[in-house]
Design a protein around this nucleic acid. Structure first.
Length: 297
DNA sequence: AATTCATTCAACCGCAAAGGA
DNA sequence: ATCCTTTGCGGTTGAATGAAT
């Protein structure tokens, strides 16, 4: 025999709460506090189990609950904390006043997770989807795109970005990124150990230095550090970035647009730096304000 | 206008942790 | 140390709603 469910008593109501039930619960708690949740329903005159009452109060009726859409700042905080804490919704909720763990969990599952997938980032590890990137690079190598590029049907930046990808070895390196975005710091300039790029599967979460830099409340920096090793055949870490690529990646928006064009306006865009770095909040503001990233919500 | 499909989110379930006897 | 009860958490479900056909 397994453990009986908490609400197996006959006649105990389940499902959506009525306004009358809400009122009873609010009035009781305001007058007496919740006390023992198990005892509460009887005392409050509710035909519900204690668990259901607790859930209704903490997720909906509590007076300090904040309602409405999540702000971009809240989005950033959730993304950041999730990259460190994983699916610890209650822990994440403690950093977002007025938001419940349930609300954050729902928001994650219905919006943020999809958004990360759309831009080619694994929502669990917060690393780029290397399988997608590998496929893209293979496709680019297989496809004869010379004609298209000569027609200049795309803008120069996109075409040059593609060209640079197709070069073997291509030339992208982290020092170039830091010159593109002024506030961005290469990991190598920080007092940290470089990530282990010999492993094909990146360790979950952010690089240690990025974590230690993250002061949750101020959200001073967001990490954008990825392992580069699986791309090693195509992108060499110790070579220099060409000017065209720098220009193409001058802003997050441009970077995304170019990536999207490279894919032929597909759903998945891939952004990759080939070494760890830390980006300032301003980067992410623009990043997630971009209609291409935001998508139809 | 009717039907189907997709999305959202409140609520539930089961498990684990915490706390008290 | 062990058992039992209560509380909290995370995953999942399904009704309601909106969008597409």
């Amino acid at each position: 025999m397994g453990r009986p469910p908490c609400c197996d008593e006959s006649g105990i109501k389940k499902g959506p709460w009525t306004p009358e039930e809400d009122q009873k619960l609010i009035q009781y708690i305001q007058k007496n506090g919740h006390g023992s949740w198990r005892a509460l329903p009887k005392l409050a005159g509710l035909n519900r189990c204690g668990k259901s009452c607790r859930l209704r109060w903490t997720n909906y009726l509590r007076p300090d609950i904040k309602r409405g859409k999540f702000s971009p700042e809240e989005e950033q905080t959730i993304l950041h904390l999730h990259s460190i804490l994983g699916n610890k919704w209650s822990a994440i909720a403690t950093h977002l006043p007025g938001r419940t763990d349930n609300e954050i969990k729902n928001f994650w599952n219905t919006h943020l997770k999809k958004k990360l997938i759309r831009i080619g980032v694994d929502p669990m590890t917060h690393h780029p989807r290397m399988d997608l990137l590998a496929t893209l690079t293979q496709l680019l190598c297989l496809a004869d795109l010379t004609g298209i590029m000569e027609l200049r049907a795309w803008d120069d930046h996109a075409a040059r970005f593609l060209q640079s990808l197709l070069q073997s070895p291509a030339t992208i390196n982290m020092s170039s990124f830091s010159s593109i975005i002024p506030e961005m710091k290469p990991m190598s300039s920080m007092n940290t150990q470089a990530p282990d790029t010999t492993t094909s599967v990146p360790s979950p979460g952010l690089f240690p230095a990025a974590i230690s830099n993250a002061e949750f409340y101020g959200v001073p920096e967001m990490s954008f550090g990825f392992h580069q090793q699986p791309l090693g055949n195509y992108i060499k870490q110790d070579s220099t970035c060409n000017d065209e690529l720098e220009a193409a990646m001058s802003t997050p928006s441009a970077l995304l647009r170019d990536a999207d064009r490279s894919l032929g306006n597909g759903d998945n865009c891939i952004i990759s730096s080939n070494a760890g770095c830390v980006l300032p909040p301003s980067f992410w503001s623009e990043f997630f304000d971009d209609p291409l990233v935001r998508g139809p919500i």
